[in-house]
């Protein structure tokens, strides 16, 4: 290195001071920090700040008022918000019940070479516009939809069931359909890190299916399940499209409440709702941490 350095003219002094001997490498480390501040911390801080600004006719002006929060908590919005959390939680639970066994199946029963191809299949739906994907649920779940006609043809139903569309249940079904792959990916990735030896040791010890799942698979996949759950929860609360298309009159989630505020040009209210969402999530993470010790769950498993 020193040999080659001799032929290269020395860089100008000022450039040298800024970059230093190993300066480039040093600065590269800060790029993620800059990213974090620019695209993550700053917008969040602005959201909080703007939520206490005064509302004007078309925008807002600096000031301090808790009017937006008062508006939120004294209207039906607060109640809808809580309902939205419950629906999101239901979507998480259903996604786990359906998605995690799929992840386990792919890891344990599909040959190694085919595993990633199978996982890729679950990405395919994401190639379709979310709008189209969610909209396509309507002819499936509707009064004369696929589900009802099949069940009636089979004689299982005499009347079409109507609670599965334009209802809270419809929203939950839509959320599960939209976000289920996240549980499959996250669960599979966590399980992929588990050595095959581990399963062979279980065969050797005679761990039955139930114990294998409860004692080995579930704890080892916990970080993945947790990541998938957070993702599904946040999306179920925040993606306005699903209740708009599948929820029917009055169905909202947190994202749709914020959307409606923006449409009404009430920006401080939209910001307040977003702020409440941020704090809700932080609070849930904190509770999760106290209950399960997340650092332990997320600790690198070596």
């Amino acid at each position: 290195m020193t040999d080659r350095g001799r032929d290269i003219p020395a860089p100008p002094a000022r450039w040298k001071r800024l970059v230093g001997e190993d300066g480039i490498q040093k600065w590269v480390f800060y790029i993620p920090v800059v990213f974090f501040i620019l695209f993550f911390a700053a917008p969040m801080a602005l959201t909080v700040v703007w939520s206490v600004f005064e509302r004007t006719q078309f925008w807002m002006e600096p000031g301090f008022t808790l009017f937006a929060y008062e508006n939120f908590f004294t209207s039906a919005r607060a109640e809808n918000y809580v309902l939205s959390m419950l629906h999101a939680a239901a979507a998480v639970v259903i996604s786990f019940v359906i998605g995690f066994p799929i992840a386990v199946f792919i890891r344990r029963r599909v040959t190694r070479a085919a595993q990633h191809r199978v996982i890729l299949l679950f990405i395919l739906p994401f190639m379709i516009s979310e709008l189209v994907r969610v909209f396509a649920m309507r002819p499936v779940l509707g009064r004369n939809g696929v589900v009802n006609s099949v069940l009636m043809e089979l004689g299982i139903l005499s009347e079409p069931i109507t609670v599965i569309l334009y209802s809270p249940l419809g929203v939950i079904i839509g959320d599960v359909m939209s976000f289920l792959p996240f549980m499959i990916f996250a669960g599979f990735l966590a399980l992929e890190a588990v050595q095959n030896y581990i399963f062979e040791v279980c065969d050797d010890l005679g761990t039955g299916r139930v114990r294998l799942f409860a004692d080995i698979v579930l704890p080892l996949a916990a970080p993945g399940i947790f990541a998938g759950s957070v993702f599904i929860f946040v999306n179920s609360m925040g993606v306005a499209l699903v209740p708009t298309l599948l929820g029917g009159p009055g169905a909202v989630n947190a994202g749709l409440i914020a959307n409606q505020a923006i449409v009404a040009l009430d920006f401080p209210l939209a910001m307040a709702i977003s702020t409440i969402m941020i704090f809700t999530l932080v609070l849930l993470l904190y509770i999760g941490h106290r209950l399960f010790d997340l650092t332990k769950i997320l600790e690198p498993i070596s």
């Binding site: 050595q195 030896y197 581990i198 062979e200 040791v201 050797d204 005679g206 080995i216 080892l220 498993i301």
Partner: peptide, 20 residues
Amino acid sequence: LPPNRRPTSMVFQNYALFPH
């Protein structure tokens, strides 16, 4: 017979402890 019903037990090359 499956491994647990045989009078044998296996020690693997590596990475075979339950990490949790």
